[in-house]
Design a protein around this nucleic acid. Structure first.
Lengths: 150, 150
DNA sequence: GCAAGATAGTTACAGTTGAAACTAATTGCA
DNA sequence: TGCAATTAGTTTCAACTGTAACTATCTTGC
């Protein structure tokens, strides 16, 4: 390739973006159609399914989402009684979040669906390829963070 | 990992999303601050730098963007005289797009910056790792498209 | 040669987004 | 104690997004 011309279709950031958008859209459709959840809401649910009792800010850290996005996702889920919120008595700014019964029920249904999508996505990769992918994603993510940090 | 609990931080779609968002945000900052371009505008520019004379619809295909997004990006770039548009005399619905002088000047500056970011992102990967990444991205993208299609 | 459908591109609209400003509560420190 | 700085979380606002509807042009089949 000529040095003065860039092949967008081989450019790593572009390729990552196309892959991620394809995957995210497919999953968003499932979450929305079958469970009425947005992607941010699904992420909040996943964080609380794994780590019950997190505060909204801790959810934001775990999920790499903006605190505004988390606030709105939590608010919508509270309206639907998918979550329970308990204000911390020691620090009344904080509130501990857990999955309520309805939220836990959706979580139990959605986890196998998410796993199944992941499995189908990766199933044509060999064991070695899957291990390599794992390692490469970790390395690239760490590096991207370093670059952004300065 | 318990079958009933999903580790979000190991979930492939989530990891792709975090990596892509980190990369896209870093690049968007550069494009915006140094060249006044949005990501869609940069993509339009990249497509036309590589393939001068594409129509807006062809740009949308090459860049995997929505035609509305392309229309708006093109419109903003025409306002700044970064692009030239020539209506096709054989089919007056179509219009051929090329980089105008100002657009070509920005393109010449931005391509090395984009390349440098990509190089820094991948520089701690061995040759073999880079080749593996290339292959894995292509496979996953193809597979994601298959799943979405059917 | 002309109505019915297809295609390029734009506009309108309703929903989503994040930065910045805000409220309320807590902490640090003089 | 008391006041400035910090932190949790929400609200506001302006920008961006994609779907659907639209205009204008072209193609097809009769």
């Amino acid at each position: 390739m000529n040095d003065d011309v860039l092949a967008l279709e081989r450019f790593l950031p572009y390729r990552l973006s196309v892959l991620t958008n394809t995957v995210s859209r497919a999953l968003a459709r499932v979450y929305q159609d079958r469970f009425g959840l947005s992607i941010p809401q699904w992420r909040v649910m996943a964080a609380l399914g794994r780590f019950p009792g997190l505060s909204a800010n801790e959810v934001a850290e775990k999920t790499a989402m903006d605190k505004v996005t988390v606030s709105r996702a939590v608010s919508g889920m509270l309206d639907r009684d998918l979550l329970a919120r308990v204000v911390d008595t020691n620090d009344r700014r904080r509130a501990s979040l857990t999955l309520a019964a309805a939220g836990a029920a959706i979580y139990a249904e959605i986890v196998p669906v998410a796993r199944d999508y992941e499995r189908r996505l990766a199933e044509m990769l060999s064991e070695e390829d899957q291990a390599a992918l794992d390692r490469l994603l970790d390395k690239l993510t760490e590096r991207a963070r370093e670059i952004s940090a300065g």
